[in-house]
Amino acid sequence: MSEWWTYSLRDLLLFSSRTYTRQFELHNQEWWPLPLFALALGAALFALAWRGGERAGRAQLLVLATCWLWVAWAWHVQRYAPINWAAGYFAWAWGVQAVLLGVVAWRGSFDAAPAAALRRGFGLFLLGAAWVIYPLLAPLLGRGWTPAELFGMAPDPTALATLGVLLTIKVRQAGWLLVIPAAWSLISGATLWAMDAPEFWIAPLASLLAVGLVAMGFVDQPSSAGK
């Protein structure tokens, strides 16, 4: 599209907020009772993060790799692409992230020392929020329970949970693993903003804080928690 820079985000939005919300509702209905399994998986991920350590870290990355691959296919390709032609590109990015997570789970270099307290604390909060609080947004915002966005099923809580896990573990490749989840959070936030969705700020702010915590060098300050 020529002169694309002169368009506002709202000009480029291809669908209505009603249609977008409806996709989550149909997604949950189509795969029911998988959303219940996804909730349980979120609990397991949180327990692993709380426990800490290298083995738990590798297990978390493997769980996340599976979730990213699943969301790439079930959400982006099957559900989102019909209303947004850019979703095909998103699916590829999510597939790449799944591969990266899988490779780091297998061959990544973990530090023996745990993550810094602030970094680890925010990581646990982010993971817990993605698992428990994010699904509550739909009913709290008057959309009902059926379009609830769940970790492992919907992209935003999956990306946020990934950021949370990457803050709790001490793997040297964490910075590379942050790029796609953070980028997705910005894209999703922009989409929600264009739809006047009140929760538009959550994912971008969380991703900026997560990236900031890593970039500001909290990596090397050990904590006593979670040993």
Partner: peptide, 12 residues
């Protein structure tokens, strides 16, 4: 534009 982009939603 936008109004008919409802995806695979049968009801829509």
């Amino acid at each position: 534009w936008i109004t008919f982009n409802v995806g695979n939603d049968r009801a829509a």
